[in-house]
Every structure is written in C-alpha cells, then in structure tokens.
C-alpha cells in the first residue's frame, strides 16, 4: 500500500501539487491520468524520493519515504522516469543487469543472472543483449528501460509514460505484461498513461489529477464516466460499457 498524506509541492512560487491525500491499494494496477501539467510526474517522483518532500508524508509498504535508507527502499520500489538519457555506452544485457544492483551492490550471484536472463526473454530482448543501447531504435530502448525497471524485482513499480515510443504491438505487450505481473506476483504497479483506453482496459484503479489537485480516484469501473472525464479533460466523451469500458474520445 502506498499512503500519501497531505502532500504539497511548490516550484519557485508555483503550486505543482496541492494537498494530495490518497491511498494506492496493495496489488494491482493503478493508472494515473490527467492532462499535461496535472502534476502526475511530480507526484511519482515524490513517491520515488527523487525529489525531497516539502509538505506531508508518504509511506510505501509502511516505509516512510525520506526517512528510510535509499538502499532499502530500492528493494521495495522501482521507478522509471520519462526519457532518462542514457549517455553511457552500455550493452543491453549490462544495463538490464544493473537493475539487480540494489540486491547485489556490484557482486551479482547466480540468482541475479537467472532473473536477468528471464527478464531479457520476457521483453523479447535476448537477441539484442550484446548490442550497445545507443544503437537501438527509440522503441527498443524504451523496452530495455522497462525491462531494467522490472528486473529490480520490487513489490512496487512506478512507470512514467512507459508507452512512449512504443508501437501498438509492443505497447499492448507491455500492458499485458504489467497486468500479468500484477495478477501472478501480486505486485503493485502505478503507471502514468496518456491513452485513456489503456487505463480503461488494464487498470484496476484510476487516479485522475488536474492542475495539481486530485479530481477522482477509485476502482476503474466506478470512476471512469463521462462526468469525471469532462471535469478532468474539459470535453464530452461517451463511455461504452463492454467487457472493459471503452472511452470514445475522438
């Protein structure tokens, strides 16, 4: 469970997050949605201790963020930010293997190697393992970064727009993988997505934000409705009910 209590954040006088209180339940997929500038990425980086907390408290699985040693938190929580620029010339295999760093601190054991190999297979990267990351296409790079994040093997995974640069096939593959990991290994995944239908189809919970404020949150089927969508995104769209809800937004 990720517990967020009265969190606010300001950057040079502008309010980025305004008194957010929220509980992300343990297990399952939570989608963070909202227009640009809603504060989604800021909230994510606060949870992941990438920025210091200014106001309020956050705990992840009972561990208070900011007070828990970074190293311990890294075994509980993995994060992928949008477009981390990888300037180093590293091979795909090496980069994904660095995801195991919190567990072995530079001295990988057989267990680490097994997990890396599995993850490479899982993400269709085994054939690319010896290529340098800088030689890959944008989509392949993105898959490598996501693989590295999951390789960390944490109960909580935060993904900031992981579908960037991915074609339809790989975007669907990634969302299915996220779903499966959540179901089989009862992990908790918080994901920022722009395409609302990915949230509709794969997320258990939806958290909707706008201008630094929490607008709505709860189980997908309950929250996802025309009223909420209009309030958050600013125009009418209809929601078709099927096996999973489908938003007609264009």
């Amino acid at each position: 469970m990720i517990d967020i209590r009265n969190v606010s954040l300001s950057h040079g006088g502008t309010r980025v997050l305004d008194d957010i209180s929220l509980t992300v339940p343990k297990g399952g997929v939570t989608a963070l949605v909202g227009p640009n500038g809603a504060g989604k990425s800021s909230l994510l980086s606060l949870i992941a201790r990438l920025q210091p907390l200014q106001d309020g408290q956050i705990t992840v699985d009972g561990l208070p963020v900011g007070k828990t040693p970074s190293r311990q938190l890294a075994k509980t929580l993995a994060v992928l930010r949008q477009d981390p620029a990888i300037g180093s010339r590293l091979r795909v295999g090496e980069l994904v293997a660095l995801g195991r760093f919190p567990h072995h601190r530079g001295r990988p054991g057989p267990e680490d190697r097994r997990i890396v190999a599995e993850t490479l297979d899982e993400f269709d990267l085994a054939t690319l393992a010896d290529k340098f990351v800088e030689t890959l296409s944008g989509g392949q790079r993105q898959r490598v970064l996501v693989a590295m994040t999951f390789c960390q093997g944490t109960d909580y995974v935060l993904l900031d727009e992981p579908l960037n640069n991915l074609d339809m096939y790989h975007a669907r593959q990634l969302m299915r993988y996220v779903r499966r990991v959540a179901d089989e290994k009862t992990r908790t995944i918080v994901i920022i997505v722009h395409e609302i239908n990915y949230a509709a189809a794969y997320a258990d919970h939806i958290v909707a934000m706008k201008s630094g404020r929490l607008e709505a949150h709860g189980p997908t089927a309950e929250v996802l409705g025309p009223a909420m969508l209009k309030q958050v995104f600013g125009y009418e769209m209809s929601v078709l009910k099927g096996q999973s809800p489908l938003v007609a937004h264009y």
Partner: peptide, 22 residues
C-alpha cells in the same frame, strides 16, 4: 572496487537513486 557503483552513477541522478545508490 566501486566499479559497478560508478557505472550506475553514469546513468544519472534519478536512475541512481531509483537503484538505491547514495
């Protein structure tokens, strides 16, 4: 002795912190 930690460092601040590096 700290080679792996330096490699992690080269990935930047956010990734380093995410991997629990001081």
């Amino acid at each position: 002795w700290t080679a792996d930690r330096l490699t992690v460092l080269s990935l930047g601040r956010d990734v380093s912190i995410g991997l629990g590096l001081d």
